[in-house]
Amino acid sequence: MSISVNLEAQILDKANSEAQILKNAFASVGTLVINVMSSPGSGKTELISVLSDELRAQGSKVAVLVGDCATDHDAKRLSPHVDWVEQIQTKGVCHLEARMFTPYLDDLLQLAPQFLFIENVGNLVCPVDFDLGESIRVSLLSTTEGEDKPAKYPDLFRTCHITVISKADLIEAVEFSEHEARHYIELVSPKTNTIKVSARTKEGIEELAQAIRAITAQTKEGS
């Protein structure tokens, strides 16, 4: 004879409570955490570099935690553009988790940057369900990927406050339809703020920096 025990427990509660601790810690030193997610090769590192140049030119301190399965290439690329950067090599894990930030927390809280970008592992599926204590989620849709990526991976785009159409300088070369892309973005994420950007020509970078600052102001009002 067997007995049944009712639990009704949310399995990701513990992971989410770790993220909440991070969120509170960063809020206490005035750091806005931005989780950047997209496919591999859609331009996250380049975007964060150029955006950091812009934010630092306006007097802000910027830190980056960057995740990849292997190598520290991205940390090296980011290093000249930011105040602090660390590479997390996940050894094959397809997303970042809050628990992976523990070794860097003291350093970051001491530095107290205005902005901490978390460049997630390039992946449109797995990072979605892992809260990293962020206040803003940014997704990238590069012009080289095709307009319908948001429809194919709706969950990731749905959870993002800002969707960046990246590599705008290639629109003509790859015959990308901005109209069609915006249609798909609005279908999966009706409330998202969509901004067209080129890290190469700097088109849209100032607008993106302003959008992030606007959310920072809202976050401060809300707290």
């Binding site: 004879m1 067997s2 007995i3 049944s4 025990v5 009712n6 639990l7 009704e8 427990a9 949310q10 399995i11 990701l12 369900d129």
Partner: peptide
């Protein structure tokens, strides 16, 4: 993504 219940032997 929830655990609803467990069944225990005995």
């Amino acid at each position: 993504f929830d655990v609803i219940s467990l069944e225990l032997a005995g």
